[in-house]
Nucleic acid binder design. Structure first.
Length: 429
RNA sequence: GUGGAUGUAGCUCAGCUGGUUAGAGCAUCGGUUUGUGGUACCGGGAGUCGGGGGUUCGAAUCCCCUCAUCCACCCCA
């Protein structure tokens, strides 16, 4: 019976595993460089955990099950609820600020398509307990810092930034009721994908009032923060939110990443829990879905039964990132095999054991060494060493039989020397 | 949940309007007479042509059903 792999999953053969590790190691490097500490949680939680902040639609996209104790559980589709739970549990003893990162494997029962699978890895960074805007700036900086690290430039990607707080204030100004807000947000979030007509049609459904519609359309057409101040008669709350966004851009400029950043009114983000700055990083050509997204979510810890503590963060999945890096030709280093230090092979059957002994001694010295299980011909030996990316090869042949000498060849320089094993080991010291 | 496309060797595919034992390139393994690396040549293994049914003397090829995958929509934490 042949059993196929499960829909939306990936098998990581050594080649793909190398790439996956390269991506994850890069995320970890960037996190640590930016002062984040690593954490992790269980791969499943109570189903309830994921129902708190999202509706039944989201629950349909969970892999959930009942355990033998009739507990309703779900495989994690994200790690933020786990983070909220963990932080809440120790909120009074954790040193502030809480700057944590994680690279969880997560699962969502969505229909797979380009850049979206049912199982993937998601880099998360979060800063908890900092009300100041500097934390939002740092999160965005860290994401960009990683992009730069892997060779992406401001010609390749752009961080599109907006503010939920500002949108809320202006929509309030326009006269949109709080209960209409979610629907309007959802429509606004789609703006970039739709034609003018399609957008207006969709908006019509959410917002029957013509006057308000016109105002929203006017708002969605702005391309700069200054334009907002020119077009709208801002009240105090709206002005404060606009000023805050301006301040964010000032901070990002100070951090030297402003060429990656641009204001974009259409960045709203799907679900309701964002309360302030929101952003998404996209490929500049606009061919792919968002590489990463995040923002401020000041109510989340409270929603999970904790105290009211502010938070801001972001998540980046490996699927879109990999496609983007592939398109930009930035995966050459990721695919390069590491290669062993020594490849050892014997030309005669009686010398195979000795090659194992030599490999063992090199390994004991902390070097990587691989050897052939069977005697092989010289030509094949060289080819094998070359395929394995070996830095050196050691040949056991006639001279080993006669005088216990190894032929040690540097594969790159092609230089080779005859020496005893002791001499080789001594030279390593 | 909706729509579109595609399923032939491990991978990428070819197989014209149905015709004998189903092919190529890459990969893999083994060779090319005696001890030195991505080249060249020879050879081997590997496929119930996604599965089932139908039409036909004969189906990878035509028809129906089904499954799977990919792409787009929905959704996107």
């Amino acid at each position: 019976m042949k059993i196929p792999p499960v829909k939306g999953t990936r098998d990581f053969y050594p080649e793909q595993m190398r790439l996956r590790n390269w991506i994850i190691d890069g995320w970890k490097d960037a996190s640590i460089r930016n002062g984040f500490l690593e954490y992790d949680g269980p791969i499943f939680e109570y189903l309830k955990m994921y129902q708190v902040k999202s509706g039944d639609e989201i629950v349909e996209q969970l892999f959930s099950f009942e355990d033998r104790g009739q507990r309703l559980l779900a495989i994690r589709p994200e790690i933020t609820p786990t983070l909220a739970r963990m932080v809440n549990q120790q909120i009074n003893s954790l040193p502030r600020p809480i700057k944590w990162f994680s690279v969880p494997r997560v699962c969502r029962a969505e229909r797979p398509q380009k850049g979206r699978l049912r199982e993937f890895f998601q880099w998360n960074i979060d800063i908890i307990g900092v009300d100041e805007l500097i934390a939002d700036a740092e999160v965005i900086f860290c994401a960009i810092d990683y992009m730069r690290q892997v060779g992406l430039t401001s010609d390749d990607v752009v961080a599109k930034i907006s503010s939920r707080k500002m949108l809320a204030a202006i929509l309030d100004l326009i006269g949109i009721a709080p209960q209409e807000l979610t629907g309007v947000y959802t429509t606004m979030d789609k703006r970039a994908k739709l034609s003018d007509e399609a957008f207006e049609e969709l908006l019509e459904k959410q917002l029957p009032d013509k006057q308000k519609q016109a105002e929203v359309i006017k708002l969605m057409a702005v391309t700069s923060i200054n334009e907002i101040e020119e077009i709208f008669e801002l009240n105090e709350a709206a002005q404060a939110a606009v000023d805050e966004l301006k301040e964010l851009f000032r901070l990002l400029d100070m951090m030297g990443v402003s060429d990656f950043c641009s204001f974009d009114i259409s960045i709203v983000r799907g679900l309701a829990y964002y309360t302030g700055v929101v952003f998404e990083v996209h490929d500049k050509l606009g061919e792919l879905r968002a590489v990463c997204g995040g923002g401020r979510y000041d109510n989340l810890l409270k929603d999970f039964g904790g105290p009211s503590v502010s938070a801001t963060g972001m998540g980046m999945g490996d699927c879109v990132l990999e496609i983007l890096l592939e398109n930009k030709g930035l995966l050459d280093n990721a695919r390069k095999p590491l290669g062993v230090d020594y490849y050892i092979a014997a030309l005669d059957k009686e010398l195979v054991e000795a090659s194992f002994e030599i490999a063992a001694k090199l390994r004991a010295k902390g070097l990587s060494a691989e050897f052939a299980y069977k005697p092989i011909k010289m030509k094949k030996l060289m080819k094998q060493a070359s395929n394995l990316g070996a830095k050196h090869c050691i040949v056991l042949g006639q001279e080993f039989i006669e005088s216990k000498e190894l032929v040690v060849k540097n594969m790159a320089s092609q230089e080779q020397k005859n020496m005893s094993l002791d001499a080789l080991l001594a030279q390593l010291r």
